[in-house]
Write a protein that binds this DNA or RNA. Structure first.
Lengths: 158, 158
DNA sequence: CCTATTTAGTTAGCATGCTAACTAGTTTAA
DNA sequence: TTAAACTAGTTAGCATGCTAACTAAATAGG
């Protein structure tokens, strides 16, 4: 989108590529803003999701919410635990799973994080109407479904 | 977006995260489809951009078009050269830059790639109107500008 | 003309996504 | 009840993005 092609050309070229670029930029903006807290992208993202899912969430549930695979998450939760932001406790009812809880220190960090994010979000969504944002969200949902269908089509092909 | 939260909630949580996920899925769909050609995501993306920019493009121009940094591109062009898909020639007028050209074999591969991509794109954009796609493209442009402003704001802060 | 700055490209090494292959509990079914 | 299949989580190693620090060529200022 840095290019000056008309929109339909850009679309034809790669709406997908634009998404990737904008995604990286937005992510970097937030990461830069929360840098003073000592958090990286994967860590602050995970913290926000744990907060939304409520404490005691399993890694499986968290990975699903984040839309990433388990091994990607393993690394992140390990780091969060090392930083004493979360603790993991083995689930008594199913000793395979480990439930995630914020530490006291983690909760303080979460508050600071949420404050900064609210500020950044306002800036990222500036000059976009609720309707535009809604259209984008709907479009993303549709494209996600299309991509999943497409992937299983080409996977099953073999 | 895999979650069942209402849209405004999802937005609040992370439109950005959705973009990242959808981007990865779309990218994976194309990559899977072109796998028979022996191309990875970064390589087929670069090929499409070289094609659009015309041959003889410099790495600098290509990186800018792709929206990535030079070191990220260096790896990819090196691979494309090793696969004999492109050749790089030092620019006579500026011996620092290296101009990129498709080999004959590369041009054949490009044609095959473009055929497959046209098919996949149709599937990815299914059930989305031109207007929706246009709104998304506009939204992405606005968000890209917002993010860049935000990044320079927080960078300059220090 | 020579030094200082800028620019194109590379190398090294980190961050975060992935798949494949593993361990260790849980569930299913013979 | 015990073997088979599934599930939660981990480890190892790849792909692709990045920044920092480098080389070599071009340009600008004195």
């Amino acid at each position: 989108m840095t290019s000056s092609l008309p929109f339909h050309e850009t679309l034809d070229l790669s709406l997908c590529g634009s998404m990737g670029r904008v995604f990286r930029l937005c992510r970097d903006a937030v990461t830069l803003a929360v840098e003073p807290l000592g958090l990286t992208q994967s860590r602050w993202t995970a913290m926000i999701h744990i907060h939304h899912l409520k404490q005691g969430v399993t890694q499986q549930e968290l990975a699903s919410s984040l839309g990433i695979e388990m091994p990607s998450l393993t690394r992140t939760v390990k780091q969060l635990e090392q930083q004493a932001i979360i603790v993991r406790r083995v689930d008594i009812d199913d000793k395979r799973s480990r439930k995630i809880y914020f530490t006291e220190q983690g909760l303080l960090l979460l508050d600071a994080l949420r404050d900064i994010m609210a500020e950044v979000k306002t800036q990222l969504y500036a000059e976009l109407t609720t309707q535009q944002l809604d259209t984008m969200a709907h479009g993303l949902v549709q494209m996600e479904a299309n991509a999943r269908r497409c992937i299983s089509y080409f996977s099953g092909d073999k």
